[in-house]
């Protein structure tokens, strides 16, 4: 019984960390490789969830619907980048304000379009039992999913021309253009990629987190705190910080309830920022 409880607690932490990582990684890519903080990240996630939901309800298989959701959210991200982000390069706080405005517009648009309550995707809810406890199989699947996403991003940014050029651009924008890199295009692709990852998160999490206009809010607080305390190493920093923060929170939440879990998360972040004001990975010499 005790052992079962520990196992459930452990699995719970790992799935919580994996879920959070999936929801965060798009934000981390945009921040880490573009230097832009996208306050509409949560709404991109919501956008992806609704797109996936709509496509599923049209009869398309779920996995394919997720793919459609990713593509449409990426395209939407690219448009936002060109219209909103590009004119404000170098004005970080202005970009934040503008994306903040965008996030509210998107929430409101979703309320008008879909209402505040929406049906689920109707996937069968499998679960496995550990002793007296039951765990959702789908949530457990988020662990390998997170691993695949992280690995794919790593390969993208270390093995492809785009990836290497994108990393060069964020490290020294002027120098990147002085070796011939079109940093402006790179940024559009990066932002679209970040949006696509948010859309992927929205679609993937749909069976666990039903689509609502303010579903983004569930993730963004933690996502922002993770990304800021992670620092410049977009992937490893985020994974490490996300892992630490999510598991401490998950344990706290399991014992004392979710509100205290959230508070714990916030306090832990502040502790990290107090120790590493510019993020955990500020001094890491690492590729990504």
């Amino acid at each position: 019984m005790d052992l079962d409880y520990l196992l459930v607690l452990l699995l719970g932490s790992v799935t919580a960390a994996a879920t959070l990582l999936i929801a965060t990684v798009g934000l981390a890519v945009v921040y880490g490789l573009m230097g832009v903080v996208n306050l509409a990240h949560g709404e991109f996630l919501m956008f992806g969830a609704y797109t996936t939901l709509t496509v599923t309800r049209m009869g398309v298989p779920f996995v394919l619907a997720i793919l459609v959701g990713v593509i449409i959210t990426s395209l939407f991200g690219a448009i936002v980048e060109v219209l909103l982000i590009k004119p404000m390069y170098g004005r970080l706080l202005d970009t934040m304000l503008a994306t903040w405005g965008l996030s509210l517009v998107l929430v409101q648009a979703a309320v008008l379009q879909f209402g505040t309550v929406t049906p689920g995707v109707g996937l069968p809810q499998w679960s496995i039992s550990i002793g007296d406890f039951e765990m959702s199989t789908y949530l457990l699947l988020m662990v390998p999913a997170a691993a695949v996403i992280v690995a794919a991003i790593y390969l993208l940014f270390t093995r492809t021309s785009y990836g290497v050029m994108a990393r060069a651009s964020i490290q020294d924008r002027q120098m990147a253009s002085a070796v011939g890199i079109e940093t402006s295009w790179i940024n559009t692709i990066t932002f679209a990629l970040g949006a696509g990852l948010a859309g992927l998160a929205g679609g993937l999490l749909l069976p666990a987190v039903p689509a609502t206009p303010d579903m983004g809010l569930l993730f963004v607080i933690k996502a922002f705190l993770i990304v800021v305390s992670a620092g410049p190493a977009a992937l490893s920093g985020t994974a490490a910080t996300g892992g630490i923060l999510a598991s401490t929170t998950s344990v706290t939440a399991n014992i004392w309830g979710s509100a205290l879990g959230d508070l714990m998360f916030f306090v832990a972040t502040i502790a990290i920022l107090r120790l590493f004001p510019l993020g955990i990975s500020h001094k890491w010499r690492i590729r990504l």
Binding site: V37, L39, L92, L93, M96, L217, V220, I221, F224, L225, V228, G257, S258, A259, D262, L263, F266, T269, I270, L273, R274, P277, L278, G279
Partner: peptide, 25 residues
């Protein structure tokens, strides 16, 4: 904590969101 202005802004933002979620319960 010698944070950059960006970290500061995010911290103010998240503290608002945190209060929202906390006050609900």
């Amino acid at each position: 904590a010698n944070m950059g202005n960006l970290q500061r802004t995010i911290l103010t933002y998240t503290s608002t969101l945190l209060l929202l979620t906390l006050m609900v319960s």
